[in-house]
Design a protein around this nucleic acid. Structure first.
Length: 570
RNA sequence: CGGGGCGUAGCUCAGCCUGGUAGAGCACACGGUUCGGGACCGUGUGGUCGGAGGUUCAAAUCCUCUCGCCCCGACCA
């Protein structure tokens, strides 16, 4: 492709609204163009990257036994009412009406549509399992779109859905999808990790996220050298080290102490000369159904996702100050588990392991010391509700955990019968009994993966594309196109490279060298070939890799072979 | 939805406080000199100052409303 006949306009300045580097570079490299908040045009160069990834995804999905189809992006409300999500999905679901005032939504995901398509055709265990996927534009009216393609409202996603007669069959496909995802991200040359994840409001029994590791990632992942990895929302740990010994003799019975104005654990700890880990941190939360109390050790944090799951709630938030007083009788910052009645108390196991502790007294400006968990209070539930921290022992091997940042590019779920049961997507088993199908779903963010690739592969000058995702593989620059010998040499090289099957992008513009070099660095095609006046006089071109930008002269006659050699090594 | 900020040329921004002929750099067009890491000189093109209403002799500037965008938070297949 010749630049002069393409549609590519690079930007010298970062768009003022671009915050993260992938957004800045994709915009400056003329690959995406924002139309509205979280809504982008994929310009020709950007679309090529998405298509390259889509092709890889297709190959791997097909190889793993999934079958491609395409579903509508506009979906009737009836299906969503049937699954119950018309009510639950909230404002993220973009609802629209047609001219007859009938309700539709723009699909954020396609469980309902695929389940409907399957139930109208599949009736027997003999027809299962089935595994279908599509690559399609979705819309989710995110509260706050940001970071360019990383969190758009409209985005391209590959979504697959599988249907099974048994958990074992689902597991088989789930593993196949996991392997397919690994192959996709391996082929993209991305550094990633697969982690256990919370199933969120989609529901289901097992779930993994594929995280591309990048400093700017939105999600924290907890990982161990032994291979354990989990989303920070989900991560568990082996028992952590106990608090240091209680200074002096702890009171034999709980004893109230005056702690005026000290509401945070560090403040009270300093005031009473205790360690934060001697405290029981007591958080009052409000769910869709009740008030509840969460207890973690003073140096820990409550993991609201874990807590939500333990409580069986769909929404959870910290209770407002007035509510705290209502529940505990004390003010915010003086809550404790002793003497609380009328609310469910959830304690983290680490709290129950404490020999003796300090906590709020449920009375303004007072705390209580000498509290013994199990003796002075008995929680309704003991469950892991703490946030795993870096350095905590791995739940599998006991080694120290590390926390990294990642970008969620894929998410696979075992859905079970959540949708099939509600929507009567049933089959007859061998015994002739009606059973709901067991489902899995498998998402892969195509645009987000491209953005993640940029996030992970760039330098000060611009993008450094991994070859499989590069819009073009080779950039050919004619430095002085007005010099006939240069023009001829470049034109010949261009034709030869194309004939050799290379994806060449030929910068034939009448621009100064610096402009061309800077654009080449910005756009980041893996291999660069420069044809200049001096080189041509000596029958040479210059090759370099975007990765290291080390320049090597090569005879014009050997250039094509050398380019192919370089590409093969990428 | 809460808090904060911003909408002025294709892009990045100044001007607004203190009302008085709409600016700069880049980009673009033409001429000339340049030409291996974002050249220079000259001459130009280009803006209903997001929109509506109000105050005023006079509004980009002050006031009200409204729309859009960004950041922080809460939220998140």
């Amino acid at each position: 492709m010749r630049w002069s006949r393409y549609f590519l306009y690079t930007l010298r300045d970062n768009p003022s609204d671009a915050e993260v580097v992938s957004h800045q570079l994709l915009a400056r490299a003329g690959m995406i163009d924002k139309l509205a908040a979280g809504i982008y045009t994929y310009l020709p160069l950007g679309w090529r990257s998405l298509e390259k990834l889509a092709r890889i995804v297709r190959e791997e999905m097909n190889a793993a036994g999934s079958v491609e189809l395409a579903m509508p992006c506009v979906q009737p409300a009836e299906l969503w009412q049937e699954s119950g999500r018309w009510q639950f999905y909230g404002k993220e679901l973009l609802r629209i009406k047609d001219r007859h005032d009938r309700e539709f939504c723009f699909g954020p995901t396609h469980e309902e549509v695929i389940t409907d398509a399957v139930r109208r055709r599949v009736t027997s265990y003999r027809q299962l399992p089935a595994n279908l996927y599509q690559i399609q534009t979705k819309f989710r009216d995110e509260i706050r779109p940001r970071f360019g393609l990383m969190r758009g409202r409209e985005f391209v996603m590959k979504d697959a859905y599988s249907f099974h007669t048994s958990a074992a069959s689902l597991d088989e496909t789930y593993r196949a999808m996991e392997r397919a995802y690994r192959r996709v991200f391996d082929r993209c040359k991305l550094s990633y990790t697969a982690v256990e994840a919370d199933t969120g409001n989609i529901g289901g029994s097992e779930s993994h996220e594929f995280m591309v590791l990048a400093a700017t990632g939105e999600d924290a992942v907890v990982a161990c050298e032994c291979g354990y990895g989990a989303n920070a929302e989900k991560a568990t740990t082996a028992p952590i080290a106990p608090p240091p010994p209680w200074p002096g003799a702890a009171p034999a019975v709980p004893e109230q102490v005056h702690t005026p104005g000290a509401t945070s654990v560090p403040d009270v700890a300093a005031f009473l000369h205790l360690d934060p880990s001697h405290f029981i941190k007591t958080m009052i939360v409000e769910t869709d159904a009740e008030f509840a109390v969460a207890l973690v050790r003073g140096d820990d944090e409550v993991n609201e996702i874990k807590l939500k799951n333990v409580l069986g709630a769909t929404h959870l938030q910290l209770a407002a100050e007035a509510k705290v007083e209502q529940v505990t009788g004390g003010g915010m910052g003086f809550s404790g588990p002793v003497g609380l009645v009328g609310v469910r108390v959830v304690a983290d196991p680490e709290v129950m392991r404490m020999a003796v502790a300090a906590a709020g007294a449920n009375r303004a400006d007072y705390h209580v010391v000498g509290v013994v968990p199990g003796r002075d209070f008995t929680p309704a539930i003991v469950a892991d509700i703490r946030v795993a921290r870096a350095g905590d022992p791995c739940p599998r091997c006991g080694g120290p955990l590390v926390v990294k940042r990642g970008i969620e590019v894929g998410h696979i779920f075992k859905l079970g019968t959540k949708y099939s049961a509600k929507m009567a997507c049933n089959f007859l088993d061998e015994a002739g009994a009606v059973q709901p199908m067991i489902m899995g779903c498998y998402g892969l963010g195509v645009g987000r993966t491209v953005a993640a690739a940029v996030e992970q592969n760039h330098d000060d000058a611009g993008i450094v594309w991994p070859r499989p995702l590069a819009p073009f593989e080779v950039e050919l620059i004619a430095l002085n196109p007005d010099v006939p010998a240069v023009r001829e040499a470049a034109e010949r090289l261009y034709a030869d490279l194309e004939a050799a099957g290379c994806e060449v992008f030929y910068d034939d513009r009448d621009e100064r060298p610096g402009v061309k070099f800077n654009d080449a660095d910005l756009i980041g095609f893996p291999v660069r070939v420069v044809v200049g006046k001096k080189g041509v006089e000596q029958g040479q071109a210059e090759l370099s890799l975007r990765r290291d930008r080390v320049k090597t002269p090569v005879a014009l006659a050997d250039a094509v072979a050398k380019v192919r050699e370089l590409l093969a090594g990428l």
